[in-house]
Design a protein around this nucleic acid. Structure first.
Lengths: 199, 199
DNA sequence: TCTGCCATGTAAGCCGTTACATGATTTT
DNA sequence: AAAATCATGTAACGGCTTACATGGCAGA
């Protein structure tokens, strides 16, 4: 069982950046950040954590091996980034590869934008937009071609799908505009795009 | 390699209902009807067709075995529904099981609404709505809880996701309303209460 | 001729889930 | 005392894609 999954790895490294965590907690956070519904299972998570440890990107500490404090609490395995892990995370986050704007990866990359430099953010957003616009055009073309011989429901499905995609494009365009707007980071706005404070 | 996949089977049976077809054509149609992008591969399609033949739901005819006409065209395998296949399709389409409104199945079921009776349509739409509303509530609750400690981008991702889901709910509610409107199917004149015509 | 689309398939592998197994801790 | 939730893991399987293998037919 390989259980690679570039995306999951990145998501985990990204979460561990803000704080060391054990698996159970990590899962809750991940499920929370990326859609409250799509449940990531332990069957994926734990093997992936193992692989990250083997790769040297994270380090596992069993709280049972720490004799000092932590009295009443049960043993848990807390994971934290190694120096290599931090470096790798930083490198990955600075790349704007085409894969970054595919469906499977985009959300994770986007959710880590606070730790991504402005140029990479912009390039990923633009790549994503191109991708989605392509999709929209394909749908429009197809809708045009088959317009006549379709029943009401198929038509409605098509219309709704197209509408959702158009919203997506709009959303991306707003984000791109916003990214381009402030070339002078320290000027106006009562609500500056403050980089997040670590808890 | 099992390659079951209830959904794919249903989609195929549904397509073959309108006309016999060979695999290649079938694939194009399926990819067209359900999202112009998500490419169904031959690696799924052909094994599934085979399984349907074995199950007795469809019948395969190699055009090479028909010596009479069809001169210049190359050999193709044309599939058509058997009597059992038609019956099974009809039975499946009349059921409004919970599975029908899950993500993986809903689109296919919906795209076959033209062959589904009104009551089943309504129940599937309502089931779907309940499901999506649940999801929306989960997101709202979660957004409320974590509102403070989130960076701009995570927040934006959340906001956009919620908006898309709200649109989905709205869409479903419109559809449900439309389904409920004509309770007396054979009463009104062709003019006054006219439901909207699609362009 | 050769490029590209039509047409049918198979084998391997990927990425993930479900179901199982186990047990501690907390809440009711 | 029982039930819920915390916490960690493994084995099996599921459905899909990719890549491979093969070849006919059409038009540049």
């Amino acid at each position: 069982m390989r259980t690679r999954g570039d995306v999951l790895e990145l998501a985990i490294l990204g979460q561990l950046q803000s704080a060391p965590m054990h698996g159970y907690e990590l899962r809750k956070r991940l499920n929370a950040t990326l859609g409250a519904f799509r449940a990531l299972s332990y069957g994926s998570l734990y093997p992936c954590l193992k692989a990250l440890v083997v790769g040297g990107w994270i380090e596992a500490t069993d709280t049972a091996d720490l004799p000092h404090a932590l009295a009443g609490k049960r043993a848990r395995i807390v994971y934290q980034l190694t120096a290599e892990g931090k470096e790798r995370l930083a490198r990955t986050l600075s790349e704007a590869e085409p894969a970054a704007w595919e469906d499977e990866n985009f959300d994770v990359r986007f959710s880590l934008f606070a730790d991504t430099d402005a140029e990479t953010r912009l390039r990923i957003l633009e790549g994503r937009r191109t991708r989605i616009v392509e999709r929209r055009e394909a749908m429009r073309r197809h809708a045009q071609l088959t317009r006549e011989r379709r029943d009401h429901y198929t038509l409605e499905l098509q219309r709704h799908g197209l509408e959702q995609i158009e919203r997506e494009v709009h959303w991306l365009e707003d984000l791109i505009t916003a990214e381009r707007r402030p070339p002078h980071p320290a000027s106006e706005a009562p609500d500056p795009p403050r980089t997040k404070e670590q808890a």
